[in-house]
Design a protein around this nucleic acid. Structure first.
Length: 300
DNA sequence: AGCACCACCTGTGGGC
DNA sequence: TGCCCACAGGTGGTGC
């Protein structure tokens, strides 16, 4: 086969399923925002109790029933369905999938973990092959911070300007760039794929440490993060498909990837061979020429 | 403080 | 052909 598409595979009912990083979660958020505000939850059906992180599954059911959706928001990869009382939180982790169904039906039974029907007959279904994803119900903003977002920093796309970003960097001068960008406590939203793409765009080796970056390079890092996320949002999943009308245009950011999953292929900028290593415990792709090892920057 | 490593899961790809 | 195992990545926990 050709190169494995970045985190893309066919799953339920032949739909394309992308790994949910910030742009995918943002896409889901903006589509859900058009679909569910004003709807009232009826009784949830839990197919796999481990999916419910808080409160206990039986209390989750009681808490959600009768609550009305007001808006859909996000921080990093956490999706918030704000209710007239409390907040429903969703984290898709690796293989989670939220599926809206206007008639409430869902036929891909295999990985269905939770069904959230609305009183009007439509429903939101949560499917998750690997069961890593989690949902929470919290009764207040205070609980949200204490129970869910205790170790989650500001949203790297919506809640940080360049100045604030640089200020956060000064508190992490000793950290490696890739490990830092993946650290959701530093700033929330970057995943493995977008981190590699971002570091390629600014030409920084994943192992380079913050303190080696000049003022200009820090601004460049910020700009590259924004650019790669903007591109991801622009290309990633242009449609949150109604399960009964799975006809939306499909996002195509995989084909824009410059380094991720391209080990052995030629760098699009210089033609050198893309390398794969492990950094911060993750498969890491970079161009050894465009992103020279720390200390070798001048040998370009 | 910062990082390595593991666990949680399950489908897939490559090696033999 | 078919079995086996390493691997994939987000988060949280442990331990150095």
């Amino acid at each position: 086969m050709g190169r494995q598409l970045g985190g893309t595979k066919k799953t339920l009912a032949g739909e394309i399923d992308k790994l949910p990083e910030l742009p995918e979660v943002e896409t889901i958020r903006s589509e859900l925002e058009k679909l569910i505000p004003g709807k009232v939850f009826s009784c949830p059906v839990i197919h796999f109790p481990g999916t419910i992180e808080n409160p206990a599954p039986e209390d989750f059911i009681v808490a959600l029933e009768g609550k009305k959706v007001e808006k859909v928001t996000r921080r990093g990869k956490y999706l918030f369905i704000n209710l007239d009382q409390g907040i429903l939180v969703v984290h898709l982790r690796m293989t989670g999938n939220l599926i809206y169904s206007s008639d409430g039906c869902f036929t891909g039974e295999r990985f269905l973990r939770l069904s959230l029907p609305f009183k009007d007959g439509s429903a939101l279904h949560y499917a998750d092959m690997r069961r890593f994803g989690r949902l929470w119900y919290v009764s207040s903003e205070k609980e949200l911070e204490e129970i869910v977002l205790k170790n989650v920093g500001p949203d790297i796309y919506n809640e940080l300007d360049c100045e604030e970003f640089e200020k956060l960097l000064t508190k992490r001068e000793k950290r490696g760039l890739k490990a830092l960008l993946l650290d959701q406590a530093f700033a929330a939203g970057m995943g493995n794929i977008y981190t590699d793409e971002c570091l390629f765009r600014c030409g920084f080796n994943p192992n380079r440490q913050v303190y080696t970056l000049s003022k200009d390079e820090r601004k460049n890092l910020y700009r590259s993060i924004r650019a790669v996320l903007e591109d991801g949002i622009a290309y990633g999943g242009t449609s949150f498909r109604d399960y009964r009308n799975a006809a939306g245009a499909l996002g195509d950011f995989q084909n824009k990837l410059a380094v991720y999953n391209r080990a052995g292929e030629k760098c699009t900028r210089c033609g050198a061979e893309i390398i794969k290593t492990v950094v911060a415990g993750r498969g890491t792709y970079y161009c050894p020429c465009c992103q020279p090892e720390p200390g070798q920057e001048r040998k370009k």
